[in-house]
Nucleic acid binder design. Structure first.
Length: 400
DNA sequence: TGTTGAATCCCAC
DNA sequence: CTAACGGTGGGATTCAACA
């Protein structure tokens, strides 16, 4: 038998499925978004216009997750778009994980819609791992109303690759002996950790499939992809992965907040207010987790999509809005070329444990003193859309 | 020679 | 005809400064 049995559970078209279930079950809508070309997408009027999830019928029009909504509408003019509801997705994600937890405590949530499960012990009493996976798949569908793919293998990498095989609502295995038949014929961009840059390099070497990578000399891969990355891709192509399912989540290494502005920003006064908004979010998250940061980075994207960062290391750790904001302003002043800004971001790293803070009378008084500032911030949020959680209204801006 | 910090690049979801 | 274009977080690489 195998040393380990790992499942990878992946919700099919997560945001769209969850949206469809909610609209059907809670709002009582008769139309099921999953049966028509539809997608969850951002607010075009705020320049957050990308596809976040698409239905299976939309997939037939070659609509890709992450692509601009305008491009998707060109491919399918009748595409039904709905705005995202992240609170709903968090709830759905939790429901799924609660259900999975009944099968094993050894769960590693990998993203809002994916999880690894170490099922090595949990398969006892079942005919096969496949049998258990099918049962979980059915139960999620019956109790939660959406479908999942489950990949089964002896490590996380292979389980993940397996869950990506035919969708939706399916269980697949990819055991080591199945690698040549099931994984090696796939186009190399489907290998985990082969992104845009790596696939270009690999195609340049004349490779097309994952199997082509597997047959390559490790040192050639390292020379062209870098030492670590080359080794990683080589290992992945061979199905080698010894990493364990981590059921306890590791602490964050950084906290950041960035936003694409609904209009380009051309002056410091506005930019600094947006930096205040971003700094406030970041610092309150630091405080909520009892952390302080020693490194602050400001990130900008200009109107031509040029991306730049500028960072500084502080003399002592902080988690106050003020220090983070002042530092961010100083950084922006030091490196902004003056080109109109499309995106602004604040990121904090080099974290240390701080003290948990509580809102006290002083904080409340301070808040009152800042009433005028808050009004200015609200004004900026309205004009530049930094308050991303607000209702999405891009349907209004649709030209008839 | 090795280390550190800053900037950039790459990747996943 | 092309362009259109999020947010968050982890990690590696490169380069310069420096010990």
């Amino acid at each position: 038998m195998y040393k380990r049995i790992i499942f990878h559970v992946d919700v099919n078209s997560a945001f769209l499925s969850w949206e469809a279930v909610y609209r059907k079950e809670v709002l009582g809508e008769t139309l099921d978004l999953r049966t028509i070309p539809s997608a969850v997408g951002g607010d075009i009027s705020k320049r957050h216009g990308i596809i976040l999830a698409k239905s299976t019928p939309a997939k037939k029009y070659n609509i890709q997750t992450g692509e601009p909504i305008l491009k998707a509408l060109q491919k399918c003019p009748d595409l039904v778009l709905v705005p995202p509801n992240h609170d709903l997705y968090e709830q759905c994600s939790k429901s799924l994980k609660d259900l999975l937890f009944r099968y094993t405590p050894c769960i590693e949530p990998f993203s809002i819609d994916e999880a690894f499960l170490d099922m090595t012990g949990a398969c006892n009493g079942y005919k096969s791992p496949n049998d258990l996976a099918e049962q979980i798949r059915e139960r999620v569908k019956k109790e939660l109303g959406f479908t999942v793919n489950i990949g089964i293998s002896t490590n996380k990498l292979l389980a993940k690759m397996a869950s990506d095989f035919r969708k939706p609502d399916m269980v697949h295995t990819l055991y080591p002996e199945e690698i040549p038949a099931k994984m090696w014929p796939l186009p190399l961009e489907e290998l985990y950790f082969v992104g845009k840059a790596s696939s270009k390099v690999l195609h340049g070497l004349g490779l097309e499939t994952i199997g082509d990578i597997a047959k390559m000399d490790l040192n050639i891969l390292k020379a062209h992809l870098g030492n670590k990355h080359g080794q990683m891709i080589y290992n992945n192509s061979q199905g080698i992965d010894e990493s364990v399912v981590e059921s306890t989540s590791a602490a964050n290494k950084g906290y950041g907040n960035s936003t694409t502005l609904s209009q380009d920003v051309i002056d410091f006064e506005t930019a600094n207010l947006i930096l205040l908004d971003l700094s406030e979010t970041v610092s309150s998250r630091l405080r909520a987790d009892g952390m302080k940061c020693t490194c602050i980075t400001v990130e900008v994207t200009d109107c031509d999509f040029n991306h730049q960062t500028h960072q500084t290391t502080l003399l002592s750790p902080t988690n106050t809005t003020n220090v983070i904001h002042q530092t961010a302003c100083k950084l922006l002043k030091e490196f902004w070329s003056g080109a109109p800004l499309r995106l602004l971001g604040v990121r904090t790293t080099k974290l240390t444990k701080g003290e948990f803070t509580q809102l006290n009378l002083f904080d409340l008084l301070k808040d009152e003193r800042h009433e005028k500032l808050d009004k200015a911030l609200d004004n900026i949020r309205n004009r530049f859309g930094t308050d991303a959680i607000k209702r999405a209204s891009f349907m209004d801006s649709d030209k008839d």
